[in-house]
Design a binder for these strands. Structure first.
Lengths: 202, 202
DNA sequence: TTATTTTGTTACCAGTCGGTAACATTGGCT
DNA sequence: AGCCAATGTTACCGACTGGTAACAAAATAA
């Protein structure tokens, strides 16, 4: 009695929902959330517009689902980098930087989804902006924990410096010409900052 | 015969043009270039829509004028910071960072105009995107010259690191909650990177 | 003065925006 | 079978998008 009821319709609805979310995930990221209309979304998802509006309250609701997905994806990247050096916080930090630099150099990379949303939505009180801030605050916290584990003299300070570098990598990947090779400086810069904050000992 | 002709009409046209550009400068920056319509611009500028389309070929043309203005404004900021320490490249770099951090913490700050444009226009071949890239490339060049003047061992590398920090400051000012105080780490981070690249002297 | 160019104003264009009412159809449950 | 809820489909809404044709008023040049 818990789930055996309504197999077909639930499946159909879930199907539509997942295809809509997949379409949104790609379109909002590639073209920008404001630039993409709901008509484009439903066309891409291969569903009807009413199917969208019966699953999601509005385009803004869709946007929050998009950000939730991107948040998950980001933390899976983050965890994957850390998993390469368990118990070695300095290596973990550097590995994340190196992986980020590699990701950000892919030709289809369009920058950090949260950064783009912040640029597209001027209103800081917009729910999407709060989702952005939440992601960044959590990232700062995680960086600080790693900095503490690495015995940094000023862990909050080091975390802020590294966050500046990360945000800079996101942005520079979009603003700077590729042949300037700005991203190549990401991991080396992080290494210098970490070394200065923790002393030379590995 | 060079300029005595057509005094009135030129004045009127120039008036309309300057008021349009002033309106665009504020609206495009505050609300986003794509989000603001030409109707909003002409209303704000207090002119008629036809007056706009007789001075500017299109909204895209308007956008390029906006970017040109912002480019000038940026370099005036840049030069003002450098003028505080003539002949002292390290100080000049640090001063620019400090001034940038202060600017980016103002409540009405909406990030770097070029960064926002890059986020709003996905197409890298768009003329506005090329204007963005031009600004950043020139900035990188200037940073490199300062790094060389400061006797950095790897001037191009240091310039790239500093550019990452700068772009990060722009972005973090919009993505991060103010009480995370991320911008407070900008000048200290730059100081560490410069010291590491130039040696402890001075 | 007359003729011509520039200006301001209105109305309008086709297209797109996010969102919905209404109805036909389908499917599962009893 | 018969009912009912969830679907799919179409057409539509008012508001807004960037951009223009057409015309009246004004100012300049001759």
């Amino acid at each position: 009695m818990i789930t055996p009821k309504t197999e077909r319709k639930v499946t159909a609805a879930a199907d539509a929902q997942s295809q809509i979310l997949a379409a949104v995930d790609e379109l909002f990221y590639r073209e920008g959330a404001r630039a993409v209309g709901v008509d484009t979304v439903v066309k891409r998802a291969g569903v009807n517009k009413m199917s969208l509006y019966r699953q999601f309250e509005s385009k803004d609701g869709l946007l929050l689902h998009y950000l939730a997905r991107r948040d998950e994806k980001f933390w899976s990247y983050f965890d994957a980098s850390l998993a390469k050096h368990p118990g070695a916080p300095k290596q973990q930090l550097l590995q994340f930087m190196a992986d980020l630099a590699k990701r950000a150099q892919r030709p289809d990379y369009r920058g950090c989804p949260f950064v783009n949303i912040a640029a597209e939505f001027p209103d800081r009180s917009h729910p999407a902006r709060q989702a952005v801030a939440a992601n960044k605050t959590r990232l700062l916290t995680q960086l600080q924990e790693l900095a503490e584990a690495a015995n940094a003299k000023d862990a909050p300070g080091l975390a802020r410096m590294l966050l500046l570098l990360i945000e800079g990598a996101y942005t520079a990947s979009q603003t700077c010409a590729a042949d300037n090779h700005v991203l190549a400086a990401l991991a080396p810069a992080a290494e210098v900052l970490i070394a200065a904050a923790c002393g030379k000992a590995d």
